[in-house]
């Protein structure tokens, strides 16, 4: 087990270096460098521009700069954002909680709704609940989340005036949990909408498979109540594919967060990323993508560990292949 986790970590390192180098390379291939933007705006002399370029380290070869960048990254230093004139790591740390609150609550909503619906539709195929859940999962996976989010603002914020249309707090800072949750309802449920379908499908498939197993028949034959069979035997054994769903869902979650954060002016990483891209802020773009890559890679490893806890039959020697 420990050996397997170590191996997974070791495989993740080249992937992390690969993706950060790719993004670093791309960001530096970009036509409009911050120096160009500055000279266009201020009409600086050539000497001043050269001095600025040296100050930013843009006169060194690319691989050298990448080496410096990655070493600094692990020391927690991602350079200075040219758009905000502030340390990138401070900016990211400041925005990360908002994104985590948004994405985790979306994930939670999707699970709380999706898993029970999946279980019900598996145990009662062709029932009303089965039809409702297939309908929800189809709509959820087909509807563009930025459009449905705007419709939701139009209905719940503009016309009904029930929920706030933007921001994380009513004021400028955190006042109460209730206020935060009130602002969280619309954005997180909009992200959840696109995730629910996958949870329904995965849970339904897994439960259908488990229900056919002999040990369920045995449990029923022993006279264990239906409720206990479902909770103790079916649920536990059908959770493995659901966990897999969480891990494959993480990239979608982050991607969905970008558009939703922009629509609801949610002060998270996604809206920071858009600002970085609009201002050609290399340091900010590479910093955010590196942090997102780490989140994705770490989550995948953690979920693998969760796998074994849920299903001790998984053999790590065969998973190495």
């Amino acid at each position: 087990m420990a050996k397997y986790i170590l191996k997974r970590l070791l495989i993740s390192i080249p992937v992390f270096i690969g993706i950060t180098f790719l993004v670093f390379l791309l960001a530096n291939l970009a036509p409009g460098s911050p120096v160009d933007l500055l000279s266009a705006a201020n009409g600086m002399t050539q000497e001043q521009l050269d001095a600025y370029r040296t100050y930013l380290g843009l006169d060194k070869p690319l691989v050298y700069r990448y080496g410096i960048w990655i070493l600094d990254f692990f020391r927690g230093d991602m350079g200075t954002s040219t758009a905000f004139n502030q340390s990138v790591s401070a900016l990211i740390l400041g925005r990360l909680p908002a994104t985590l609150i948004l994405t985790l609550s979306a994930q939670l909503i999707a699970m709380v709704i999706g898993i029970p619906l999946g279980m019900v539709s598996a145990s009662k195929p062709h029932s009303v609940w089965d039809s409702i859940s297939s309908f929800i999962s189809f709509i959820g996976s087909s509807i563009p989340n930025f459009f449905i989010a705007l419709v939701a603002i139009y209905v719940f914020a503009v016309n009904l005036g029930l929920l706030p249309a933007f921001g994380m707090y009513s004021g400028t800072t955190f006042t109460s949990l209730g206020d935060l949750l009130w602002h969280l309802i619309l954005p997180s449920s909009m992200i959840a909408l696109s995730l629910i379908g996958n949870f329904i499908k995965q849970t339904k498939g897994a439960v259908l498979e488990v229900l056919n197993e002999d040990y369920i028949k045995t449990a029923k034959a022993k006279g264990i109540g239906k409720f206990r069979v479902t909770i103790k035997h079916v649920l536990r054994n059908s959770m493995t594919p659901v966990v897999a769903e969480i891990s494959t869902g993480i990239p979608f979650l982050i991607a969905g967060a970008v558009t939703i954060e922009k629509i609801f002016s949610w002060p998270g990483l996604g809206s920071l990323m858009i600002t970085g891209i609009n201002n050609r802020d290399y340091n900010l773009i590479t910093g955010i993508t590196a942090v997102i890559a780490i989140i994705v890679l770490v989550c995948n490893i953690l979920l693998d560990i969760l796998y074994t806890w849920l299903d001790p039959r998984i053999d790590f020697k065969t998973m190495d292949k």
Binding site: V15, L22, P251, I277, A293, V296
Partner: peptide, 24 residues
């Protein structure tokens, strides 16, 4: 396959955003 892993370690949307920003 490692190249595929590298591409997949970032959400599609983020990767596309970076690429599009670079190439206008």
């Amino acid at each position: 396959m490692r190249l595929a892993d590298i591409f997949m370690s970032l959400p599609t949307m983020i990767l596309v955003l970076v690429l599009v920003a670079v190439f206008n």
